[in-house]
Amino acid sequence: MRIINFSHGDFVVIGMYTAIVLYTQLGWDPLLSLLVALPLGFLLGVVLERLILSRLVDVPEGSTLLATLGLSLVVQNTLMLSFGASPRSLNVAYGSATVNLGPMTLSVIQLVAGGIVLVVIAGLYLFLNYTERGQAVRATSQNRLGAELVGINTRSVHSLVFGVGVALSVAAGIILIPQLFVTPVITGPVFTLKAFVVTVLGGLGNVWGAIGGGLLLGVVEVLGAAYISFDYRDAYGLVAFLLILLLRPEGLFGRTVKRV
């Protein structure tokens, strides 16, 4: 939708804290929390889009970026005031369980996460290609005015997309928390930055590109850390990001956009 969302990673963090609170207060397993958090995350996204982003028409460029930056600061610091700055995590019984697959050892959580990612990708693919709503989303993303002219309600498409985005971010947080530590302020930007790198690598507005970009970022970081210098691990992704932005702004996997 061409909205650069600065608060993306903070929704991952919201997911992580949701899982922690539901586990410690109610004893819910993260997978159970997921079922509740998905619709709530979707609603949250829709409400935020309606309250904030949809109002930002006919304003100076970069306003959506600034608004999501403001949102990010609000989310981070509200969490900070509620939970404190110390890192938190969630220990579930299967948190350290592993499965042997031939020569590889994989943790159960990574397997579950991978499985859910595959389901989400398949779901997105089916939604975008085989449903009317999905095609409306693609049309709006390609040409907003054109979509409006053929009767698509682009406002509701924007809400829908932002809702799905937030729901998926929250879900990612819930799935990952047994493996990671979370702090209210630092964790969010790390995810946001990685998400930027991945989408720019893959090409904005391109689901397959995002998948390829994600894989590529992982490979670049691991190879760079192994063969050049571990200290600069985070920098390799950024350098790759800059190079792609400068050399191929449409992304590695994007089609060249022709201007007429």
């Binding site: 904030i52 109002r55 930002l56 304003v59 100076p60 306003s63 600034l66 608004a67 930056l69 403001g70 949102l71 990010s72 600061l73 609000v74 989310v75 981070q76 610091n77 509200t78 900070m80 005031l81 700055a85």
Partner: peptide, 19 residues
């Protein structure tokens, strides 16, 4: 710790109402 929260709210208010 709240001053960053206030910053965030200010950004939102300014971009929405005094762009």
């Amino acid at each position: 710790e709240a001053n960053l929260l206030i910053y965030g709210l200010l950004i939102l208010i300014v971009t929405l109402f005094v762009p």
